Amino acid sequence: MQLTILDRVERPAEDVVALTLRGANGPPAPWEPGAHVDLTLPNWLTRQYSLCGDPEDRERYRIAVRHERLSRGGSDYIHRYLRQGRTLEVSLPRNHFPLVPAPGYLFLAGGIGITAILPMVRAAAGAGAASSLVYVGRTYAAMPFAGELRAAYGDRVTIVATDRDDRPDLAALAAALGPETVVYCCGPASLLASCEAVFPAGRLHVERFRPAPRTFAPDTAFDVVCARSGRTVPVPADESLLSALTHAGLPVPAGCREGVCGSCELTVLEGEPEHRDDVGAAPGRMYACVSRSLSSRLVIDL
């Protein structure tokens, strides 16, 4: 974890607060477009936020948080109680949504999904790649950084406020896609589903804030062997691996607990994990909050 100081609090749109964080003990760790961090709040909640500042700024991080009225307490606390000068713990950046090199990009952002896309737009422009952004929101006043984007990138940015504009024709955008153009999309599930229906899967990259609904076989019990600690922990059918390890006194850091942030990654040494995450676990890795085991015994590096 890194200690940071809340340097600036801004309100770039209705119900959105932007926080600028500087390192308390030197510059924070470097990052690349698509990265996010875990922010540990003074009320003991940990939440994940995309870094939406300039990756070339090695002194500061910027995140933006929409106030969700029915949230689990994270956004409400940030909007009501966080003040300039507060010291906050922030994880090292993780990136499950990297910007791949390409000659052209089409970026699509919905609402607060612009936070993940904004640094990508900046990086693509800096690399001289052909790029365009379609940014969709309910109203212009509720769309953070819309003015900043328009000022910097002009007609490469299309702002769609659905209270006054027609929704973008994604099928037409797909039909006009250049042969080497890749597509990046972040936003609500409805936008992601619409993009997945029209854009070629091999050229579409999406980031989810909530897991996609999927169906798995019924949960079964298994044993997890913790190689470093020498402990064997039974995981009942009605308990997650993350919870079983925590109850056994072997806690694993965890943020979203929904399989979208990657903070609870474990190394698998033996056995066959059943991946239920939306991150896309690398070979030999699994995420303890949602994933289980297809074998009766799983050996992990813990």
Results as ranks from 00 to 15, higher is better:
Leu173Glu: 02
Thr232Glu: 15
Ala237Thr: 09
Thr246Phe: 13
His205Gly: 06
Ser194Glu: 14
Pro236Thr: 02
Glu196Asn: 04
Leu177Ala: 14
Ser194Val: 12
Cys226Leu: 13
Pro200Gln: 05
Leu192Cys: 05
Phe216Glu: 05
Asp238Ile: 03
Cys186Arg: 13
Ser243Ala: 04
Glu196Gln: 15
Leu241Glu: 06
Leu177His: 05
Glu265Asn: 05
Ala248Glu: 00
Glu258Tyr: 09
Arg167Ser: 13
Ser243Glu: 06
Thr267Asp: 14
Glu207Gln: 04
Arg210Cys: 14
Glu239Gly: 08
Val260Leu: 07
Pro211Gln: 11
Arg214Val: 13
Val206Ser: 10
Asp238Asn: 06
Leu170Ile: 07
Asp166Gln: 12
Glu265Trp: 10
Thr215Ser: 10
Gly259Tyr: 13
Ser194Tyr: 07
Glu265Gly: 01
Ala248Asp: 04
Phe209Met: 05
Val206Leu: 06
Gly249Tyr: 10
Pro218Ala: 15
Leu245Asn: 00
Pro253Asp: 11
Ala244Glu: 01
Arg210Gln: 14
Glu265Val: 15
Pro251Arg: 00
Leu269Pro: 01
Cys226Tyr: 05
Ala172His: 03
Pro234Ser: 09
Ala212Thr: 15
Ala227Tyr: 06
Gly187Asn: 07
Leu191Gly: 13
Val268Thr: 15
Ala174Trp: 01
Phe222His: 08
Cys185Val: 12
Leu241Thr: 10
Leu266Glu: 06
Cys226Ala: 13
Phe199Ser: 04
Ala248His: 02
Arg203Val: 01
Ala217Lys: 00
Arg210Lys: 09
Pro188Trp: 00
Leu192Asn: 07
Ser229Pro: 08
Val268Lys: 11
Glu272Tyr: 07
Pro188Phe: 00
Pro253Gln: 08
Gly271Phe: 10
Ala237Glu: 10
Ala212Tyr: 00
Val268Cys: 11
Pro200Asp: 05
Asp169Lys: 14
Arg228Asp: 09
Ala175Phe: 02
Arg210Ala: 13
Pro251Phe: 03
Phe199Ala: 00
Arg231Ser: 04
Gly202Val: 15
Val252His: 02
Gly202Thr: 15
Thr246His: 15
Cys256Lys: 06
Glu196Ile: 11
Gly271Ala: 05
Pro211Arg: 12
Val252Met: 00
Ser240Thr: 10
Thr232Ile: 12
Val182Ala: 14
Gly262Arg: 12
Thr232His: 07
Pro179Lys: 11
Ala175Cys: 08
Leu269Gln: 07
Leu245His: 01
Leu177Tyr: 00
Asp165His: 10
Ala171His: 05
Val206Thr: 15
Leu177Trp: 02
Pro218Thr: 11
Ala189Gln: 13
Arg228Ile: 04
Arg208Asn: 06
Arg208Leu: 04
Leu241Tyr: 07
His205Thr: 14
Ala193Ile: 03
Pro179Ile: 01
Val183Asp: 11
Leu245Lys: 04
Ser194Gln: 13
Leu250Ser: 08
Thr181Ile: 13
Arg257Ile: 01
Ser240Pro: 01
Asp166Ala: 15
Pro188Met: 00
Leu173Arg: 11
Cys186Phe: 00
Thr215Gln: 11
Ala193Ser: 09
Thr181Asp: 06
Glu272Pro: 07
Leu192Phe: 07
Pro200Ser: 07
Tyr184Lys: 09
Gly178Tyr: 04
Leu269Gly: 11
Phe216Cys: 09
